[in-house]
């Protein structure tokens, strides 16, 4: 049998990684359409970086780090905004809402797949140990 990792670790850690991804998506969406008075302080979308962890025949996935994307915040002319700078500009958070929503759907699908893997593995193992 394989070392310290089993099929439940594989699916479980993948689920955790997808959960981190879902959390970053939630943060990005929460901060979408927020305004800032300078380009530097404007919010930029965050992305998790996945890395596979291989052990014998098993490979699970971990979140290596969460990075900020280099998307450029958009400048908007809005002199009435209290955050506007001297020239009347505000910067919008660099979040592509459509891309985030699509990413969210993919994350949910991947999560569900891992749940399904876990359920199947569980029922197969239970059938095996209840061998009458």
């Amino acid at each position: 049998m394989s070392g310290n990792m089993n099929i439940f670790d594989v699916a479980g850690r993948a689920m955790s990684a997808q959960m981190v991804r879902l959390n970053t998506t939630a943060s990005n969406l929460a901060n979408a359409r927020t305004d800032y008075s300078s380009k530097d302080e404007a919010f930029r979308a965050m992305r998790p970086v996945f890395r596979s962890v291989v052990e014998d025949n098993l490979a699970t996935v971990d979140v290596d780090k969460v990075v900020q994307t280099d998307a450029e915040p958009q400048k908007r002319h809005d002199p009435t905004n209290p955050l506007a700078d001297d020239e009347g500009y505000v910067w919008e958070a660099a979040v592509d809402e459509t891309a985030e929503l699509i990413d969210m759907l993919e994350t949910a699908r991947n999560y569900q797949n891992n749940v399904q893997v876990m359920q199947t593995a569980k029922s197969l193992i239970l059938e095996t140990i209840r061998n009458k």
Binding site: V10, F50, A59, V117, L124
Partner: peptide
């Protein structure tokens, strides 16, 4: 069969890992 199940589970777990090669 159980080892193959493990491999396929690993592939599904890494469905969104860049550069991962399915086995």
């Amino acid at each position: 069969r159980s080892q193959r199940l493990n491999m396929l589970a690993s592939n599904i777990a890494n469905a969104s890992t860049p550069g991962y090669k399915a086995k």
